[in-house]
């Protein structure tokens, strides 16, 4: 176990370093952050002065060395656009993103698991078709569109919840529901198919042959086995959201998460901010994957570390 953790830690560090280096190199190929910062009318001298000031005129290797040394100390420098240290800017927004993504995933799970099970218990029945259609709708609907629909239905027409903002659970409802649509669809599909798979297996027939009820067979036997792909997908969806795929919903609902910050950082080629964001996202991905792996071990005794 501890050998496993040490190995995981080693790989995680490697991943974080690799991703950071890649981001550094890629952003340096992309374009010129300084030119994007200055007004279009800024003169050549001002432009050169700014490049010099920000260290962009140094050789890439020097810049990289500087970046590496600081990054190891957890210092990603100041954001180019925002007059503030990059890492705190990202960390400051994490709670909002965690809250939003976590709630969305919980909503998705709470609805998707029963939905998928219902569909799996009576395949090709009317109920199955309704559930499958719901899933398909959830995962194919554009979050932008769904978000605006909800805004116009609830706060604008019915006076319920808020169009935007952050603070109370009422602010959270609409963005979380919007964000839940896709994982809801995908998770309920995987619940359906993996429960169906499991119900088809010999151990289920054997359990039934011992007189277990359908409920006991499903909950006591099949679901535990079906859980692995469900956990995998749920983890993936959660990671996806935490990695910044909340951005559209953040924009629509004015939610102060990291997604918008990251997209701005990319657009503005705000390298320190981007690096800090990538670092934080990589850490999150690593930690969530670790948790998922541990969860696998808890779910399936065949998996040992």
């Amino acid at each position: 176990m501890s050998a496993y953790l040490a190995r995981r830690l080693f790989y995680s560090i490697a991943v974080v370093i690799g991703v950071s280096v890649a981001v550094f190199l890629i952003t340096h190929q992309l374009g010129d952050p300084v030119r994007m910062m200055l007004p279009l009318e800024a003169s050549e001298e001002q432009y050169q002065a700014a490049r010099q000031q920000l260290g962009f005129n140094d050789p890439v290797l020097v810049q990289f060395a500087r970046f590496s040394v600081d990054a190891v100390r957890g210092d990603f420098g100041d954001s180019l656009w925002m007059d503030a240290p990059a890492l705190p800017l990202v960390l400051e927004r994490l709670p909002a993103t965690f809250l939003l993504a976590g709630t969305a995933i919980i909503i998705a799970l709470v609805l998707a698991v029963p939905l998928g099970i219902i569909a799996a218990l009576k395949p090709r029945s009317l109920l199955d078709h309704v559930a499958s259609l719901t899933a398909l709708l959830g995962l194919s609907i554009a979050d932008f569109w769904l978000g605006l629909m909800l805004i116009f239905i609830f706060p604008v027409s019915l006076g319920l919840f808020y169009t935007s903002g952050y603070g109370t659970w009422e602010h959270l409802v609409l963005p979380a529901v919007t964000l839940a649509a896709r994982p809801l669809g995908r998770i309920s599909q995987i619940v359906r198919s993996s429960v169906l798979d499991e119900l088809d297996k010999n151990y289920v027939t054997a359990a039934r042959a011992r007189g277990l009820s359908e409920q006991a067979t499903l909950l006591g036997h099949a679901l535990r086995n079906a859980a692995i792909p469900i956990v995998t997908l749920t983890g993936f969806e959660l990671t996806r959201l935490l990695a910044g795929f909340t951005v559209v919903v953040e924009a629509v609902f004015g939610w102060p998460g990291v997604g918008l910050l990251a997209v701005d950082a990319i657009e503005r080629q705000d390298l320190p901010l981007l690096q800090a964001d990538v670092f934080v996202v990589a850490m999150i991905v690593v930690v969530i994957n670790l948790l998922i792996d541990l969860l696998y071990g808890a779910l399936d005794p065949r998996i040992r570390y």
């Binding site: 054997a206 042959a209 535990r224 005794p301």
Partner: peptide, 22 residues
């Protein structure tokens, strides 16, 4: 259900897959 496993028991061809792995 009260008959299954109590009055009539059944064992299957493939012992590898007839037990719940988890």
């Amino acid at each position: 259900r009260a008959v299954r496993g109590k009055d009539i028991a059944m064992i299957f061809q493939d012992p590898m897959t007839s037990l719940n792995p988890v």
